[in-house]
Structure formats: structure tokens, C-alpha cells
């Protein structure tokens, strides 16, 4: 069988060297505003966690990261434990992404399996066919939370560490989806099982209620080895994917689930009200 490497004549060793030369580079998400927040993109080869509650856009962000990767010449693998691929193909098509076509072009693969199989597999035997076929530079695991259903809490960290290190060794930039419970109230934690320290970067997505409407917020909580935008930015899921908008500059307490307008804004409102009354 002709693999992409044999077609191009690039050996594994050449790729290894190229990868080494590229160290320290950025992996662009292709979402302009997010890349700006990340000062160019995620760090190459890093493990990134995208955390958030159900329905806040984690899967959309993850798919967009892979589809944009393909456009940038970086093939990607999407590992799903939950949704069947045909549902993912359909949802992606609604956002303008033809994943079946990308698969036919050997630039993308969806692997659908059970979490216990990923844990049981030694080395990369479960993913090796996809790795061999398309030589991915990006991978999404949707979601790490599903692994938690198959292992004890103490083992989850070890297994997640094994998975992350395996992908890092291969030079693949990973994006791990974590479904966190509804993050509300006065405290905020991404995972309750201590996975945060295993990953290099954490992007948190959170639905927030502001003036009786549900809006979505995105924040970069952590990024090893690089500065990043610390502001909470509003985002929307549009017909073409995630669109990041302005920062929640006039509110505080957004991440805790109890947003309130900052004092200066309240005063401005009062002044505006008084001025209108005078008219």
C-alpha cells in the first residue's frame, strides 16, 4: 500500500528531524481571534484541554481545530467515544466541513471506539492504522471524561498521563476534551480529578447568564511557556463555526456564574438615566 510518506519520499527519520527543527513553533487553530489570544497558536506538540459543560461548543471547537489544521497542511485524527461518526459528519457538514471528503483525501480520520479499548491498547495499536495512513500532526480525544468511567480516580491521572506522553513522543499536538459539570457558583475548577496539571494549556468554555439571556464565554486559563490573553471573551457558534467576539469588559464575576456590571458601568447608567430625565 502506498502511504503518504512513501509517496513523498519522506522517511520517518526525516520527519523526526523536521519536527525537531520546528520545535517551539505554534499550532494555529485557524480561528483568528483565538490565535491572537494565544499569541500565534498553541505551542507545537502541547497537550491542550478544552473544558466546558455540555452544549457549550467543545466539539465544534475541536473539529474546527482539525479542519483548519488540514487547510494548513496538518492532517488530523478525531477520536470519539460518544457520538457515532455519521452524526459527526452530518453536524460538521452543517458548519460547511465535508469530513468524508477529507477522509477520502487521507487528510483526516475519525476513529470511534470504546474508552476501555484505548486504555487496553499497548502502544498505539488502536490508532496505528490511522497514524500510518495519514501521519497526523493533530489529534482530538473527545472526551477524556469518558475514560473516567472506566478507571478509578487515582488511575485516571496515570492513564491520561500515559496517553498524553504517548502522543507527545510522536510529536502530535493533542486537544483533549473534558466535560466539566455546570460551572457555577462562587468556585471554579476545571476538573475535579486533578488533570489540569497534566496538560500544557487549558481553554475553558462556559455558558453565562447576563441580563436574562444565555451567552458563551471563552478564557485561556493556562498556557505553559507563553504569555496569552487573560480576558474572558464572548463567543458564538455561527454557521461557519466558532466566532470569538469582544471581551466581557463591563462585567465581573462572569466565570463564577454570578456576573454583575462593574461599578463604573452602573454609574454610567445612572448618569445616562439622569441626563435623559433632564431632557
Amino acid at each position: 500500500m502506498t502511504t503518504p510518506s512513501s509517496r513523498t519520499g519522506v522517511s520517518g527519520f526525516d520527519q523526526f528531524l523536521t519536527r525537531k527543527v520546528g520545535e517551539g513553533g505554534r499550532v494555529r487553530t485557524g480561528i483568528a481571534e483565538l490565535d491572537e489570544m494565544l499569541h500565534g497558536g498553541f505551542m507545537e506538540g502541547d497537550a491542550v484541554m478544552v473544558a466546558g459543560s455540555a452544549g457549550c461548543g467543545k466539539t465544534t471547537l475541536a473539529l474546527q481545530y482539525l479542519v483548519n489544521g488540514v487547510k494548513l497542511g496538518e492532517p488530523g485524527v478525531y477520536v470519539t467515544f460518544e457520538e457515532l461518526p455519521d452524526q459527526i459528519y452530518r453536524d460538521a457538514k452543517n458548519l460547511g466541513w465535508d469530513l468524508r471528503k477529507l477522509e477520502e483525501e487521507n487528510k483526516f480520520r475519525i476513529v470511534c471506539t470504546s474508552p476501555n479499548l484505548l486504555l487496553e491498547s499497548e502502544g498505539d495499536s488502536l490508532l496505528d492504522e490511522s497514524f500510518r495512513d495519514i501521519q497526523p500532526r493533530r489529534i482530538v480525544v473527545d472526551s477524556l471524561s469518558h475514560l473516567a468511567m472506566f478507571v478509578k480516580e487515582s488511575e485516571l491521572r496515570r492513564e491520561a498521563y500515559r496517553l498524553i506522553m504517548h502522543l507527545k513522543t510522536k510529536g502530535i499536538s493533542s486537544l483533549l476534551v473534558w466535560e466539566s459539570p455546570q460551572m457555577a457558583g462562587g468556585s471554579f475548577s476545571v476538573t475535579e480529578v486533578g488533570l489540569s496539571f497534566l496538560v500544557d494549556c487549558i481553554v475553558a468554555l462556559k455558558p453565562v447568564e447576563i441580563e436574562s439571556s444565555m451567552r458563551k464565554a471563552l478564557v485561556i486559563l493556562k498556557m505553559r511557556g507563553s504569555d496569552h490573553d487573560k480576558r474572558l471573551r464572548e463567543f458564538q457558534i455561527t454557521s461557519t463555526g466558532i466566532k470569538i467576539e469582544s471581551a466581557f469588559t463591563n462585567y465581573e464575576g462572569v466565570i463564577t456564574g454570578s456576573p454583575r456590571r462593574v461599578a463604573s458601568e452602573k454609574f454610567m447608567d445612572l448618569f445616562r438615566g439622569a441626563a435623559e430625565k433632564r431632557k
Binding site: E103, R109, V111, C112, T113, S114, L117, L126
Partner: peptide, 16 residues
């Protein structure tokens, strides 16, 4: 055919 990337055990495939 709808899910060409499916890799699973007999029991899990049956469940699907």
C-alpha cells in the same frame, strides 16, 4: 459504511 472509523468489540458493535 456510515461509520468507517468504528473500532469496537463484538458486544459493543452489537449494542450500537
Amino acid at each position: 459504511h456510515r461509520n468507517p472509523g468504528l473500532i469496537d468489540t463484538l458486544d459493543s458493535v452489537a449494542r450500537r
